[in-house]
Design a protein around this nucleic acid. Sequence first.
DNA 1: AACCAGGACACAA
DNA 2: TTGTGTCATGGT
Length: 297
Amino acid sequence: MNPELTQVSFPVADYDLHTTLASGQSFGWRRQGDAWTGVIHGRWVRLRSAPSAIQAATVQAPADWRWLREYLQIDAPLDRIIATFPQDPWMQTAVRACPGLRLLRQDPWECLAGFILSSTKRITQIEQITARLCACYGDPVGVPLGVEPAYTFPAAARLAACSEAQLRACKMGFRAPYLLAAARHVAEGRLDWKQMASSPIGEAREALVAIPGVGRKIADCVLLFTGLFPQAFPVDVWILRTLQEQYFKNQPVSPKKILEFTEHYFGPWAGYAQQYVFHHARMQGAAKRGDRDKALP
DNA sequence: AACCAGGACACAA
DNA sequence: TTGTGTCATGGT
């Protein structure tokens, strides 16, 4: 149809594209109908799920598709990963409830910035803020005819050159000074991603927590969603509530105890387990709210 | 219309 | 160490 489009199909088993892209690990994907569009490594992409395959389209034929396979983590051995999860009933329920849920391998800076913007925000709002940020300070990328414009996620140096007021104009509120500080930190080259990748997780986490506005939770999100440390286990309000209910008899547990628990109980792929816990808990919450809302007059 | 959201931080006790 | 208030914003 569109002469510029280059398409490819990746055979996949057990990959739920919709659940994965909507599971709150990345904030740059937009859905229209059954298709998802986003920008990866400066390239516009449209993804669609087909039976036992993911179809991808870009505007110009890339030399190869490794960048996309890696981003989507198509070759991650999901069945073997899930086999390492704890065998307790609730964990198994969560696994069955989210078949094909995957983790992506995201760009470190985009991931860091996205999660700095995530604090006490709903996922839809984080997506809106990042969209404004990209439109204002990102670079336009080539899109097919008739498709709305798309932009890269702005580089750290670009945001570092902004004023706090300019960032606030993207409706990020009190997160603006944090994002600005982080952008400067990264733009000054004070974060060595390569070294982090070859460091123990504790050292990598320390390097992230040294950034203003980045605490343990956001640091763990970055460690996990960049694909560097699959054992990283971000504990947010959903996870905290759920673990308390399921593993601590609904008793209040200190943050320290929770972290201690997550660091040994969920195994070497704890971060994947975490995503199943998170997504299942969130879906259950939505279902409950839906039920209650329907019951109201 | 009030409530609360994938937190972090400064400060109190 | 654990508990508070504060920070903006808008969807439900």
